[in-house]
Amino acid sequence: MTNSDIMRHRLRNQLLGGSSHTSAATVVQWMGCVQADDYAAAKRSISARLLAPRYNDTDRLVNEGQLRRSFLLKPLPALVTAADNVRIQPFTLSGVQQAGRRLHRMLGIDAALLRQSRRQLETALRDGQQLTRTQLTPLLGLSPQDLRMPFLLMDAELEGVICNGPLAGKTFTYQLQSHWPMNYDAALALWLLTDRYFRSRGPARLHDFVAWSGLSVPQGKKGIAMARLAYQVVDGEAYWYAADMEVTAPVIRSMKELPKDGEFRITYDG
């Protein structure tokens, strides 16, 4: 396997060298998650991976709750299927919260403010209310320019108080979280993360996976062992991929232009 082969495999596995997917749900499930700090860019990334981009059903699936905007891996929102979010987020939760606390200290957010904001959000969103961040900000006594607001919302999401609701135009709303899973299978979550990543983004290195997932190196190694991946050494580095991947490098006849923060550009660590 050469560096050129690796690139062509990655293009195919990321569904950029041709795709049979007809729904955003199956694209997001295949990818594990799609970064959605910029929702419009996330939709373009999904469109690039659909058989018929003009039939992108992301908005409908978000409104129906089949796709969730979640802080799945890092303190940055991503689109994930509702089923995968339930199985994976409890496993990654502590790491995301730890990263968030570092940002809290920079902004002067303390435990008392977090508790207060959670109570205020519960009050504002009771009785089935679905409100945007702009609508919620004054209800928490903050100005529109207050940089703390998105971090208070993220904390409430990670604590299982709120989740995204349907879109209001092009803007996400928030609603109370109806169910927060208390029990989960850590081994299944790690296997899912590992399998999703290397099937959709392999061949890739261990530190690519760790950088993408936010897991520790020991966790990454454990996941690779659990998923029983195959690998080849190229220029002294091991590149891992799903054991049933066709190792003959595909022919890529066309490429699709992606937004600057598209998945292909942020998936690998250098």
Rank of each mutant, 00 (worst) to 15 (best):
A230W: 08
G169Q: 03
K170L: 08
A25E: 15
G18F: 11
R12N: 09
A40T: 13
Q14D: 01
P75K: 01
A230I: 02
R101E: 08
L72R: 02
V96H: 04
K170I: 10
G165W: 05
P53E: 03
S143F: 05
H104F: 14
E122P: 00
K222M: 13
G95W: 07
L206M: 12
L107Y: 07
L136Y: 05
P218Q: 00
S213H: 01
L190Y: 10
L131A: 10
A40K: 14
Y231P: 02
M1K: 03
V233A: 12
R54C: 06
Q14K: 01
L147C: 02
T81D: 05
L121H: 02
D110K: 10
G160L: 03
L158R: 00
N3I: 12
M7R: 13
A211G: 08
I224G: 10
G17R: 04
D84M: 01
S47F: 06
L67S: 01
Q175T: 00
L79E: 03
Y241F: 15
R49I: 06
S178N: 13
L51F: 12
P75C: 04
L103D: 01
M7Q: 13
N63F: 00
D127S: 15
L114R: 08
R54H: 13
R69M: 04
T171C: 05
G169E: 08
T194R: 08
Q89A: 08
H207F: 13
L61C: 00
R69N: 08
R8K: 09
M1V: 05
R68N: 01
Q120P: 01
M154D: 03
L51P: 00
T26D: 15
A211R: 15
R201E: 12
Q14Y: 00
R12G: 04
N13T: 08
A111S: 15
R87V: 11
S178H: 10
L113E: 10
A204R: 06
D195I: 06
G95N: 13
D110I: 07
T248I: 14
H207V: 13
D185W: 03
D59R: 01
A99L: 07
I6H: 07
E246P: 10
M154N: 07
L206W: 11
D269E: 13
K260G: 12
W212N: 08
F209P: 03
S47C: 04
W240E: 01
R12E: 11
A156K: 00
T267I: 00
Y241W: 12
L229K: 07
A52R: 14
K43Q: 15
L76D: 02
R196F: 10
N164D: 10
L16W: 07
M255E: 15
R196P: 03
K43G: 02
D38N: 15
L140C: 04
A242C: 08
Y55C: 12
S45W: 06
P144R: 02
E263H: 12
D5P: 08
I252T: 12
R10N: 02
T26W: 12
P75A: 02
